[in-house]
């Protein structure tokens, strides 16, 4: 990047740190996204189908039910964690009264 050409901006350390932590969270969650759908639901489906819970072969369950539940939880975790991260770095959005938008 051409950042090195410019004189260093003194208060920009927080930007890199914020972004690094955002990316780390994102990559972890996308890893789980790939794991439940593509790995459990498609690549390892036959092996997991050997295990049957409440009538569901496990691989089949991941493909038709489990992956969807996990997707919903992943987005919720992302939104909650980002709330905290934004607040910690002071980049959360607030109205004139200081309430979160």
């Amino acid at each position: 990047m051409s950042d090195t050409d410019k004189p260093a901006e003194p208060d920009n350390g927080w930007r890199q740190e914020y972004w690094r932590r955002n990316l780390r969270l994102m990559i972890t969650l996308l890893g789980i996204w790939f794991l439940v759908s593509f790995v459990c639901g498609i690549l390892l489906v036959e092996q997991l189908n050997e295990i049957v819970i409440a009538g569901f072969p496990l691989g089949f369950w991941f493909a038709q039910q489990g992956s969807i539940y996990v997707f919903v939880v992943l987005i919720l975790v992302y939104a909650l964690r980002m709330d905290k991260l934004d607040e910690e770095f002071g980049v959360d959005e607030r109205d004139e009264q200081g309430n979160r938008l």
Binding site: R15, Y18, D86, G90
Partner: peptide, 11 residues
Amino acid sequence: IRYPAKQRRVT
């Protein structure tokens, strides 16, 4: 666009 707030608050 990486930072939600228009202006950063002092934490």
